[in-house]
Amino acid sequence: MTDYSPLLSTIQKITHGFGDKSALLPLSLQPYRSTLAEKKQVHGIRIVDINQPAQHCGEADGFFTREPGILIAVLTADCLPVIFSRKDGSAIGAVHAGWRGLLHGIVEQMAKRINRDDSTGNWVASIGAAAGACCYEVNEELITHFKQLLPYPAEIISPSYRHLDLAAIAKNKLNDLGFAAVDQAGSCTLCTLDSTRTQPQYFKYTSYRRNSRHRQQDPSYPDIKGRNQYSGIVITG
């Protein structure tokens, strides 16, 4: 079932949701699909203001709007989706934060955009499903790079050998940047099973890494092109 943030669910003027394999775009957001921006996510840190439906944005990984009825969404399949709302629902945002974007400052760029004419203290954020610390194994060099560049204890960045905790890093960044509250919706995209289906084994989320392993074993196994999940938010009130 679609993941929802308890924190964002208290804001009456917005609708949000984090997609999964059962509904890549959450059902509550599907009426707004035609308003989605045209963009290319590139694991960067560019934030774009969305002022009109179906706006052409070029290469971008973060989106911000104060316009009602325009769906702001990012596509992920192991990377971290983070969606944002002002506490009164009058402005919203979303970022796609893989390890590159998270390390290089996509979250900070969203905070900078908010602080241009507001304060992050008036905003909340929710972190969606992504590759979890349980499964997200990377090389030692990348772990070392994170530890060198980020001012967090080693156990937050890497709670076990060569495993990276994207969600914990993002949560600490968001707290440090002054957001009023942060929560997490969803779980690990690599290993979380769909609790509604037991036979055969069926995973809840699309996962690039899991799919790549299957394709290494069986080149005929279909790739995930067109099957990434959307995490999105729209001002409805």
Rank of each mutant, 00 (worst) to 15 (best):
V74E: 03
G98L: 13
R86K: 15
S90R: 02
W99F: 13
S85Q: 06
S90G: 11
V82K: 06
L80M: 15
A94G: 07
L75S: 08
T76N: 03
A73Q: 09
G93E: 02
L75G: 00
I72F: 11
D88Y: 03
I92L: 05
I72A: 05
A94R: 03
L80P: 07
L80R: 06
W99G: 03
S85N: 07
I72W: 03
C79S: 15
F84V: 03
G98E: 15
L80S: 08
C79F: 12
L80E: 09
D88H: 02
G89M: 06
L80Y: 07
A97G: 05
C79N: 14
A91S: 13
I92T: 02
C79T: 15
F84Q: 01
K87L: 14
T76L: 05
G93T: 00
I92P: 01
A94N: 05
G101C: 13
K87M: 14
L75P: 01
L75V: 03
D78V: 10
S90K: 04
L75T: 05
R86I: 02
I92F: 04
D88N: 09
W99C: 09
V82H: 01
G98F: 13
T76K: 00
V82M: 08
G93P: 02
R86A: 08
G101L: 13
V82Q: 04
H96K: 04
F84S: 01
K87W: 07
A97Q: 07
G93W: 04
G93V: 02
K87N: 11
P81K: 09
D78L: 12
D78Y: 12
A77H: 09
V95C: 05
G101T: 13
V95F: 07
A94M: 07
H96Q: 08
A77R: 06
I72T: 07
D78R: 06
G98T: 14
R100L: 14
A73D: 12
A91P: 08
A97Y: 06
C79L: 13
R100E: 15
R100I: 15
G93I: 02
H96N: 01
G89L: 09
P81E: 11
A97L: 10
A77K: 10
G101R: 10
I83E: 00
H96F: 12
A91D: 11
K87Y: 05
R86P: 00
A97R: 04
I92H: 00
V95N: 01
C79G: 13
W99M: 14
A91W: 12
R100C: 11
T76Y: 01
A97M: 10
W99L: 14
R86T: 02
A94C: 08
F84C: 06
S85K: 05
I92V: 15
G101N: 09
D78W: 08
F84A: 01
D88E: 02
T76A: 03
A73S: 14
R86G: 01
A97K: 04
G101A: 11
S90M: 06
G93N: 05
I83P: 00
